[in-house]
Design a protein around this nucleic acid. Structure first.
Lengths: 343, 343
DNA sequence: TAAAATTGCGCAATCGATTGTACAGGTTTT
DNA sequence: AAAACCTGTACAATCGATTGCGCAATTTTA
């Protein structure tokens, strides 16, 4: 372990040339002779030269920090998405700084400001539950900060984004329930101001309409995405005269809550009630019965978001129409929704 | 949004003073008059000045990057640990660069080298399954890189570390099984060269010895930490004459595999076999019956590791004895191990 | 009141890499 | 053979912030 810091000057001194020649040689500049270039590279390797990114970034007026703002890191979807981002950003020479909002708009705004202050090259974000408008995001992009939204985005904001095709996923899931013979299918939704939940609702509606099944407002339950709220709602439903015969939930967690509550009440799943969740959380294959759900390809989404952002960063002038990528979720059919199948 | 970059020179020009005065004023140097200091601060705020960390780091010969090397980011324990680290490092002005080894020693060595090349200030790491010796880590610390190990550490390496008190946790879990009347308790272990699994085995042994229960070598099963291996082992056990009456597993996953396999074979849990896992993975409360396990306080561990590292970074000269922090896991008693309780 | 100490700030070098420009020696063109 | 071109490299400024040193003005001490 050489403890001496070796810089281009050290190398230059050793070879009796100047630092600029070393710099050019290392970056493969054609004006430097083949011979010198090879010599420099060899010597650099021998001396254990490691370029100082800070110096180079300073000179180039450019950094290597990419910010990530998400509701929580410890959610299956988000931690996988981050893994996907790292897979793209690290090899490209960028570091990730991760800010958690814990679903608070205030922390989201804070985080964005911190990233701006830290001279981040760009930001990948998924908005918090609380966030109702994109003023802070708009301000950031207006100020020249490249931003890519993923999963939870804000409509009407002209910004690159990567999302799940929640509409198609919900449509397919609902259609699956219908094909299994369920008719009175209710929907557990999240806050409808979030695109994700709005699209899932729309997909559900379309499938129902196509099958000539009415969707009345009492079949749609808002803000039911936690396990607790799923349990409570299921409890409420139990007191009513007529139970739905299936649930398409926007969340695996509320689906879980309902599943457990119904099961404890002696209701048969999937015979009496079919249940489909959303997100393919790891626990869904362990419930009894296993929960049908939709896989979201979180790592792919993370990778794509990172790629989009790096493109933006590396050619800012290019003011095209923002890209919009969409991944179709895959329906994972398990027991909780299979009434027809003999098993 | 001012688009002009404002530097200390911009401010200096505006106030007809020099950049050095501005720099000193902003850093609260006493040699600058109160009046000037306030004026500079006010003007800096007005002009929207944001210090350029790269320039300052370059000058100070110091960076703000902390590396994290872990087997996988998308494991409950690790993603929570990272959340804990971020909570400490971000406010302190450090960014995290996360490298996943996917349990490969080669990738671990690579990651460490990358971090060294990127001039990381320090590294927090948890070794891969494959890693059998700490030569690369020793080399890094010898080269002056502060390192803190957490959870999966290497013995005999004189380095700061933060771990679970696996011994105490395993002891308590085993004792709990004994108190529930189980006698023929077997242990699912991981690779014994990893401290974590060694300690869990030792805790198990101690509890058994104290209760005058023999532990023979056929009661200890090595390398059973995945769901699949748990299922296979359970299947094998089923073919033998005499089943154990309880399992203390080093992993929730293999405990899950065994639980499911036994259940499918018509064996009653906890009446016939009691099961205890380790890690309190989210799914453990959803299995049927719910799995008794040990909570690991991953966020606290992450926070502590980050604190230790920052201490090391910020006073390198201080060559004390390495710190060793240990968190006692908490036993979460659920149905899978409660034979005595009426329910 | 002269000498000493303190206060307040400017000058210029520095961190390491990059890059526009200059320049010497060699080659080709006319 | 003079003019025009390349080639390969050196020089020096630059990115933005920090800091040792120096100097003048002011205050304290003797």
């Amino acid at each position: 372990m050489k403890n001496q810091k070796v810089t281009i000057h050290t190398i230059a001194a050793r070879l009796n040339i100047t630092a600029s020649t070393v710099s050019r040689a290392l970056s493969g500049n054609k004006r430097i002779s083949q011979k010198t270039r090879e010599l420099v590279n060899k010597t650099a390797a021998e001396m254990g030269y490691k370029p100082n990114h800070m110096a180079s970034n300073l000179r180039k007026g450019k950094g290597n920090l990419i910010g990530v703002i998400i509701p929580r890191i410890n959610r299956h979807f988000f931690s996988h998405a981050i893994a996907g981002m790292e897979a793209i950003t690290n090899p490209a020479g960028y570091n990730l700084m991760i800010c958690q909002t814990n679903e608070s708009q205030a922390k989201e705004i804070d985080g964005l400001q911190t990233l701006i202050n830290n001279r981040a090259e760009g930001v990948i974000m998924s908005i918090s539950n609380e966030t109702r408008n994109g003023a802070h995001i708009q301000a950031a992009t207006d100020g020249g900060m490249p931003v890519v939204l993923f999963d939870r985005i804000i409509k009407n904001l002209n910004i690159d984004h990567v999302i799940n095709d929640n509409f198609a996923g919900a449509y397919e899931a609902t259609k699956h329930l219908i094909e299994q013979g369920y008719k009175n299918i209710v929907h557990f939704s999240g806050s409808l101001h979030i695109n994700v939940y709005e699209q899932r609702l729309n997909g559900y509606k379309k499938a129902m309409n196509e099958a000539n099944l009415d969707v009345t407002s009492d079949m749609i339950f808002d803000n039911i995405i936690t396990r607790l709220s799923g349990e409570e709602l299921a409890q409420t439903l139990l007191t009513k005269n007529k139970l739905p015969d299936a649930i398409f939930s926007s969340s695996d967690y509320s689906a879980l809550g309902a599943l457990i509550t119904f099961k404890n009440a002696g209701i048969n799943i999937p015979q009496d009630i079919g249940i489909v969740g959303f997100a393919n959380e790891p626990f869904t294959e362990l419930t009894d019965p296993a929960l049908t759900t939709l896989e979201q390809y979180s790592e792919d989404i993370g990778r794509s978001a990172a790629r989009l952002l790096i493109e933006r960063i590396e050619n800012k002038q290019n003011k095209e129409v923002p890209s919009s990528l969409s991944f179709k979720p895959q329906l994972i059919i398990r027991k909780s929704s299979q009434r027809n199948t003999i098993d």
